[in-house]
Nucleic acid binder design. Sequence first.
DNA 1: CTGCACTGCTCAATCGATGAAGCAAGAATT
DNA 2: AATTCTTGCTTCATCGATTGAGCAGTGCAG
Lengths: 337, 337
Amino acid sequence: MNHQRPQKKTTIYDLAELAGTSASAVSAVLNGNWKKRRISSQLADKITKIAEEQGYAVNMQASLLRRDKSRIIGMLVPKYDNRYFGSIVETFEIMARERGLFPIITCTLRNPELEVEAARTMLSYQVEWLISTGATDPDRITDLCLAGGARSLNLDLPGSKATSIISDNFGGARELTRRTLLNLQRKKGALLPLLFIGGRGADHNTAERIRGFRTAHQDLGVTIEEHHILACGYAPEKAADALNALVTSEGSVPAGLFVNSTISLEGVMRWLKSSPMGIDSQPVIGCFDWDPFVALMGHEIEMARQDVAGMLNAVFDIVESGDSGDRKLIEIQPIFA
Amino acid sequence: MNHQRPQKKTTIYDLAELAGTSASAVSAVLNGNWKKRRISSQLADKITKIAEEQGYAVNMQASLLRRDKSRIIGMLVPKYDNRYFGSIVETFEIMARERGLFPIITCTLRNPELEVEAARTMLSYQVEWLISTGATDPDRITDLCLAGGARSLNLDLPGSKATSIISDNFGGARELTRRTLLNLQRKKGALLPLLFIGGRGADHNTAERIRGFRTAHQDLGVTIEEHHILACGYAPEKAADALNALVTSEGSVPAGLFVNSTISLEGVMRWLKSSPMGIDSQPVIGCFDWDPFVALMGHEIEMARQDVAGMLNAVFDIVESGDSGDRKLIEIQPIFA
DNA sequence: CTGCACTGCTCAATCGATGAAGCAAGAATT
DNA sequence: AATTCTTGCTTCATCGATTGAGCAGTGCAG
């Protein structure tokens, strides 16, 4: 048996006693403003040394209670299961730390109730800012923040009550569609309309991407089949089901696909793999989102990679300027390989 | 201009004034032990209603300062850029919340200094437990926790000073190797030794997987080529470089590969795609880790999927039993499709 | 009519860190 | 010698929530 009982925590009072001084001197030394408070450098050195020996760490709860700013920044994110959100979270943490902020992240599993509960918890922890990423009801969260003394921003999906930073979904989809149409022309020798699959018709991003999809077809003079716009949801199975239904009613699938996320693409690829169609009749694909393995799959798949660093730079510009002034919609161009 | 100045935060004193009662009654009501404190249900209802109207949220900093347990559980994770860690983080959050714990997660980018700094910060936030996932120096973190009044566990990579929960790397690699050898035999009609690629030879997991790799070859009476064990690091480029070097010195690559992570696999696949070898001479692959798109790639790739839920159940069993007693090594069997 | 139990609350100390205000002793100025 | 200034600290109130102790008022037994 090896009892690893963690020790009782050291406080500034313990350090003060060890150093034969007062807690307030210790506090002044440890947060670096001992010059302002006219503490001698001998005492400062002594206290610093003792603090190190004792492995002292401030009690943030006590410290933050006293201060007026928490320097905590929260983020709500739907899932960690794809490269887009993974990259958002990782970049967010790095950028927050670079600015001396402490990031807290929570995933809400696309569950509206969890979103609200998580937001409340974040407010309890005194976040100064709350970034709602891909939230189902961002305005609800903005209201909570407003009542709870925090500022809020929306990322990825826009809301109407706070500034929103999103991809240029229209422009990105238009370009992705254009590229995919040309890839298809190269392969088949003709301009043929694409199938749009994945996403929720009700959400802003999907609506804008469908608009870009339409515009790109128009640009090239291609007529869209209206029943080939399938905003069937994001889950992989939904995409597979939608393709099955299409084959049942029409006997085949278009030669080119616009897939609305890597999550949907997972369903599409699974379906294609098990489909009765021959390998050489595999469709040309464009995907709105990026994944490294997709880039390596047999198919040449065109991908629109959302500019995560660009979006988060915009977020932190606002956070640092402290300007939650008027609610803007900031659109960031996606990147093409 | 739309000044979204967040309001000053409501405290229990504000609520007490509004309800014409004392802060202590408000506190008792809001944390649900008003029965114990003999508050009438009329007053309880009144306070609850007012709190809701005001959008009150406790100040956790103040609350935690007073309580003895923080119910905060921290996790250090190297990256968010693959399905394994993504799944660990997501499952960790869910399980923590189910148990009334507040999870804080930080990624350390495989940077030893960041690991230590992040651990210190977590201690400042009064975590009760700190889970080090894939840490480069888990024992250092355990020491910090011990000094700082927290308990610690290691996940994914073991340490010597705290209980560690890891995959059964030996058993998993042995089974994965066996399956890959048989796949290769099915394809080529003969038992041929595999190439091991990826990971760091110095880390426990890679060493154990190499041991499993050897044992599986022995089991089937296949002789390993010693210079075909390439623990070249995890980054994709490292794997590609190692393969290039091999081709330069030997002119070709073995017909079967054991790839030590999806990250390394990314490099391997990239290299294969651009390699001069014909498509039908693509090697048979086994990968220690899982990714949904890999499962869909043209190749039949055998994958050992680490049992994230199983590992985290073991973590929370220990957390809940409060038993950091003796340091054990708990190994969880990976899952084969 | 006194004593005791019970109900329904309030008071005040406390958690640890912070910083404005103040104090004592020596140095410098008049 | 009397005064101001400067240095180097300490004291104490404060942040918001929690909780043991205590206090009025009512009900009921003896």
